[in-house]
């Protein structure tokens, strides 16, 4: 399934680019994820607990960052597998400066397999978008907590 969308982050582009590739930030922002553990260059081990309605699944997998093109784009690949199936998200994130932050546009695909594919297809689109939105919401919270400001890199 193809996915695409855009979210605005309230920090300048270079900062946004760094935050989006910071494993600590990613780990905290990804829904259901505790922490990312580095296992290679731009490659992290991920454990994710997905809770959606009554569904409850543990996924074990990897987060990878590829095709990095500082500070304008990179590819984020998230793969996980568990008892209820497996999922794979692959998105190209493109960053563009805005007056008060950065526009992050994503374009990619979500694939699922196993039981979640067989019973979840009607919900895949809407729940993927929800999870992506939660990711960016959490990221914003992280940014606010860290004291980053949209205009911090700009003259007041």
């Amino acid at each position: 399934m193809k996915i695409s969308g855009a979210h605005v982050i309230s920090v300048p582009q270079e900062r946004a680019y760094a935050l989006l590739q910071d494993p600590a930030v990613l780990g905290r922002s990804m829904p259901g994820c505790d922490a990312l553990e580095k296992i290679g260059e731009n490659e992290y081990h991920m454990k994710m607990k997905m809770v959606l309605a009554s569904m409850n699944g543990l996924f074990d997998g990897k987060v990878r960052i590829t095709d990095a093109n500082p500070f304008s784009s990179f590819r984020l690949i998230v793969e996980g597998a568990g008892k209820i199936g497996f999922m794979r998200g692959n998105g190209l994130l493109t960053l563009a400066p805005l007056e008060n932050g950065t526009n992050v546009q994503y374009e990619g695909s979500v694939e699922v397999g196993g039981t979640i594919a067989a019973v979840g297809q009607r919900l895949l689109d809407t729940t993927s978008r929800m999870l992506i939105k939660r990711f960016f919401d959490k990221l914003s919270t992280e940014i606010a907590a860290s004291g980053d400001k949209a205009g911090s890199a700009l003259p007041a």
Binding site: E111, V112, G113, G114, A117, A118, V119, Q121
Partner: peptide, 8 residues
């Protein structure tokens, strides 16, 4: 990918 999407 060979996943049966209408599997229930």
């Amino acid at each position: 990918n060979g996943q049966l999407l209408t599997g229930e």
